[in-house]
Design a protein around this nucleic acid. Structure first.
Lengths: 331, 331
DNA sequence: TTGTTTTCGTGAAACGTTTCATGACTTTTA
DNA sequence: TAAAAGTCATGAAACGTTTCACGAAAACAA
């Protein structure tokens, strides 16, 4: 009699099908097997409800079926969505996701790096702002939003096009004098391209713009000061604001509210990311939406792709504008 | 000569230390070993920078070092924090977290259930509203916020105390006539206890209250209607509102804004959960804060605890009140 | 000193896969 | 028809652990 509580193994399947272990293995892995054999094995697998033990598999193949996702945190809604979609994609492909939230916790970063060194993950998808991250070349790595080295593929939305779209949108919505608010970064981040895209867009539409750049670490209240300076007796002297991030847009909106400036009446605001309001499908502000789902899918495709040489160094995915109530309705 | 690129195995450690495989295994697993042996092994482990291969471990022990976390989504900030903290706790204990975001995706639920049946996880931590979830008794299960059966432990914050605290807080802040807004649920959810707690608190403080209960699926705009009815020529007839959830509080705040009711001037609002504003440490409203970190730690403790019989069926963790600007400053 | 008990490190077997050399069987060729 | 070539399932070895029966050495008792 068969033990009821042990999951069936390949051996059981082989016995049931009347074939050898190797044959079952081949069928399971999609290797060529004579049709009658394949049928017998498939029937047996079905009958026993067999599923491979990925730990035995991992042991043998020194593959772990695990991809590490290195991300600052899950609190930021954009990151949370990214986690969600990457997780889905990996699950679909029978991979596990090792979630590493790194926020300024060097211990955790070390834990993660140790695991990688010890060959416990098959690849890493990383969205990291840590500039001195040491990446072992033997582990496949896909970066999000930041080109770390020419040899490591990077997936990002089309930040240049996004910046341009924001500028053109503001112009099309009737703005004459806009501002770009951003946080400077010495790093070679992809999001930095939003700036040149924006400048390009303004040039295309003959739009006059100011730019306010905060250094890393400077308090966001500087933006408040900046905005305050634009409030004159004749009204608010800006009629459009592009914020490099929805988060900044969110803060700016609060500042504007405090200053009594009407949005989108007096000034229209566009953010970047496509952050949705708490618990709803609505965007928290008019925004350039990153294609989170495609970014996730692309990362997973890349990390699981065998042929490393064939990986392009930068993949840009298209963005789109979405109305979130902080711009006037389109005509 | 030793191959440079293969991680060291127990065999290597045994050779280095001049002891047997079994001895190394015991040291690694903390089993009793003579002190001189232990020292030799530890030195060798250190020298070779050895780390156990958990896949071999899992194969042998039919343990997988993986805990599944079943959660509706990661978009809700409360869930996102839960994921974060549970992940940390598990990582600390060398466990992996298999993240299953289930939101109304029956396919994914099936994937997850199959994995469990096939013995691919060592336990499940589940926050699920799916009433007909079938739980295999052979897999340890810890539930969050919902008692699924007397034999399955459940971790929750002290919802009763939270409801009571909200009522008493409103009373202490000078409210005379408050309302409790909630969504009804036929399920035996722990959060339902917020109601009796609230009623108890009102009784303690002789506070008059209304209650508005929405059935599952009813649009939240009903709350708007409810609020509208309380706006009279003499002003707003409610001076305090307790919402069963921060999300509802968030919506209610928007309704109140639309209705031109001043918060916290005319009416004070308290939510429940401790949701923080996008990208900040501030709460989105005055709220009863769930101890997310403790909930996470408790779940992990329970799920990894060997002795199932010793697990209590319900663990209540203390809540606290936090000011989020929608109540008047405390005196 | 001898016999008995206890302690504790040893090493082989087993966990469920994958891989590869082997050889049985079929097809092709002369 | 016989030999050579090709096809393809077979089953044993190996992956890195854990576990357990075994036996050597130490401790104790007489």
């Amino acid at each position: 009699m068969k033990q009821t509580h042990t999951p069936p193994t390949m051996k059981d399947v082989a016995a049931e099908a009347g074939v050898s272990l190797g044959t079952v293995s081949k069928v399971v892995n999609g290797l060529p097997v004579g049709e009658p054999y394949r049928q017998k094995v498939l029937r047996a697998i079905d009958k026993l409800n067999y599923q491979v033990n990925s730990y035995a598999q991992g042991l043998k193949a020194s593959r772990t079926n695990t991809i590490a996702l290195l991300i600052p945190n899950t609190r930021n809604p954009f990151f949370a969505e990214l986690v969600h979609h990457i997780n889905r994609q990996l699950l679909k492909r029978k991979y596990r996701m090792l979630l590493c939230t790194t926020e300024s916790d060097t211990d955790l970063e070390q834990t993660y790096i140790t695991m990688v060194q010890q060959n416990k993950v098959d690849g890493i998808i990383g969205l990291t702002y840590n500039p001195n991250l040491v990446i072992d070349a033997s582990v496949p790595f896909v970066s999000i939003d930041r080109v770390l080295s020419p040899s490591l593929p990077c997936v990002a939305c089309d930040n240049f096009a996004g910046g341009q779209l924001a500028a053109e949108k503001l112009a099309d919505l009737g703005c004459k004098h806009v501002a770009f608010l951003r946080i400077g970064s010495a790093l070679n981040n992809e999001p930095n391209k939003r700036k040149s895209g924006f400048e390009n867009g303004c040039a295309n539409r003959n739009l006059h713009y100011d730019m306010m750049i905060l250094n890393d670490g400077e308090p966001l209240t500087r933006f408040r000061t900046f905005l305050e300076e634009h409030r004159t007796a004749e009204g608010f002297t800006l009629d459009g604001i592009f914020c490099v991030t929805d988060y900044i847009a969110y803060c700016v909106l609060r500042f504007l509210d405090e200053l009594g400036v009407d949005v989108p009446g007096e000034v229209q605001v566009i953010g970047f990311d496509g952050t949705r309001a708490f618990g709803s499908e609505n965007y928290i502000c008019s925004t350039i939406v990153q294609p989170v789902e495609e970014i996730a899918a692309t990362c997973v495709d890349l990390i699981l792709q065998e042929d490393i040489a064939a990986k392009p160094s930068l993949i840009c995915l298209p963005v789109r504008f979405a109305d979130g109530g902080t711009t006037r309705p389109e005509t």
